[in-house]
Amino acid sequence: MMNALNEAAVKNSNLADLYYQMRRVRTFEERVGELFVRGQSAGSMLHLSIGEESAAVGVCANMRDGDTFTTHHRGHGIFLARGADPARMMAEIAGKEAGYCHGKGGSMHIADMGLGHLGANAIVGGGIPAVVGAGLAARNRKTGGVSLAFFGDGATGQGILYESMNMAALWKLPVMFVCINNQYGMGTRIDQATANPRLHERAEAFGLAARTVDGLAVEDVADAAAELIAGARAGQPGFLVIDCYRFYGHARKDKSPYRDDIEEAEGRKKDPVLSARNKLISSGMMDESTLDRVDAEIATEMDATIDFSIAEKEPQLNSMFRDVYAPGEPEPEPVRARLERILARE
């Protein structure tokens, strides 16, 4: 998939690579929307991260093998940027057996222990304290790993965030908090939800190393993340706020009646993918036709994820009772089986 990119032999391969990763996230999310329109997604609880690609890509570019992370419900881009297979992701979003969680998790509960993904979460703030524990485990087991919690500005309304920040700072854990401030918790704008929207100040109050960065420039996000992750690895937990704009509604069906067209048009000008693309062209690092080929290759790759997810099979019905408890433990008795047993009369 990197052919067109490699041919370009650019001098700033870093920005080119960050662009490539962001374009993959953007295109994947567009295909998730398409899967829904085609009636092939499992439900409509699909939260797209279009407009927020620099957060996922800029931070994940600084993670290593052995690092762990949790995400919020808008986490497709983060998982993909960390190395997920988009076809297996799409199959999970479609509720298929071939998905990462065999169709039991879906968009909001996708996870992969192999990549250190301790899970996406459908409870706002729900995945945050797990990274404190994972950081504790990394410290006690001396793995050298860092654990990162990705969440939105909406989670700054949850007490669990502050409990977790306090513990991470108190115990000097290799932990980092990544707040993707897309300006909206569902339909409520950040200034309607808090009197002080300078979110990094809260982290400073807890003794964390904190920064806010404009998500328009992915290389700025990557630089800030590099500094904070290095600090976290050395025992100074960090907090990074990435300012961006959620281009579309909260979930797939939300048409954003709570904000007007002018605001949306203005917000969508903060496009990190387009910004990186223009920078590659204007600086002479890559030309437009090469970038068109890169984009086309990615489109082909992501189109295939839709075909794959549609072609794959549903989970077996009897898998329903599996994995409530560990393998080897008795599975819960199905209602029908119980009824047949207790109502059997000689």
């Binding site: 729900g126 304290p129 797990a130 524990g133 994972a134 990394a138 087991r141 654990s147």
Partner: peptide, 11 residues
């Protein structure tokens, strides 16, 4: 919550 993460990460 942190016990959950610690358990997932090997403790």
């Amino acid at each position: 919550g942190s016990a959950v993460g610690a358990a997932m990460a090997g403790l």
